[in-house]
Design a protein around this nucleic acid. Structure first.
Lengths: 141, 141
DNA sequence: TTAAATGCAAACGCTTTGCAATTGA
DNA sequence: TCAATTGCAAAGCGTTTGCATTTAA
């Protein structure tokens, strides 16, 4: 189901501004900042405002249609949520495996690319450690 | 060699404000924000200013005495630099191993702890991917 | 003595908010 | 029709900067 239809199905209005924000996000094919989305929106909707962009992004985040990632550059990036991609957190104490959303690794991947020119392959990354329950119980690592 | 002596050795002045900022950083035993450092500084130096904190942190960063990490919470955290801790980036194409500074993984570890209550053990993490040289050459992964 | 460092205030860039006007369903 | 949504302007946040004053060496 498309973003548009999900919005409508949930009773949200499909305003031209929202359509254009969603388009910009999909067109980006990756990370895009609110500022960049606004630039594209403004081209076709000159009286629009960046606060609308932020409010739309807020809504899309709430509906899990976009992912927000802070790369630590003083601004946040947005990305259409991808289904199915995830990684694993493996508890060394009890063995429990937790799914880890892909977006959690975006900042790391981006940092490695920017600062180390290293194209990290994080597809099969599993991270070991101690899970929430074992932490509460105070189990030793 | 202590931070104090390094500063002096490099010809920087050891002002009371700087001493207190350095103390706060060491006392924190982990990450601490500029605001928190300022609070501690202000207690003992009421006329001090947060811009001094930022300028001191800037200097300590330049001297590699502290590490700056952006956890993506709208504020940056600082940490006294630790020697020797590092991880590895392994190139899948040529096998080259690059050292990766520990601080690069701080945001990930912190996110996992905050959002997943998972205490990740990243001590032995090696990340595979494609290194800078192979990327330039256009080597296939 | 004097360049370096500080305090202050103002500005910065990104993001959020209150409110009246507009608009999709 | 009318609550949801918008545009606008102003404020919020952490951070940076210019400049006169103070101070460590």
């Amino acid at each position: 189901m498309s973003c548009h239809k999900i919005l409508q199905a949930k009773g949200y209005r499909l305003t031209p501004q929202r359509v254009l924000v969603i388009e910009a996000l999909h067109h980006a094919g990756g990370h895009i900042s609110a500022e960049e989305i606004y630039k594209q929106l403004h081209k076709r909707c000159p009286y629009s405002n960046i606060s609308t962009v932020y409010r739309t992004l807020e809504l899309l985040k709430k509906l899990k249609l976009v992912t927000e990632t802070d790369f630590g550059e003083g601004r946040v990036s947005y990305h259409v949520a991808e289904k199915g991609h995830h990684h694993h957190l493996v508890c060394r104490t009890c063995g429990k495996v937790t799914n880890l959303d892909e977006s959690v690794l975006y900042p790391l991947r981006d940092t490695l690319l920017r600062d180390y020119d290293f194209d990290a392959d994080l597809r099969h990354l599993a991270i070991s450690g101690k899970c929430d329950e074992c932490r509460k119980k105070g189990e030793p690592s």
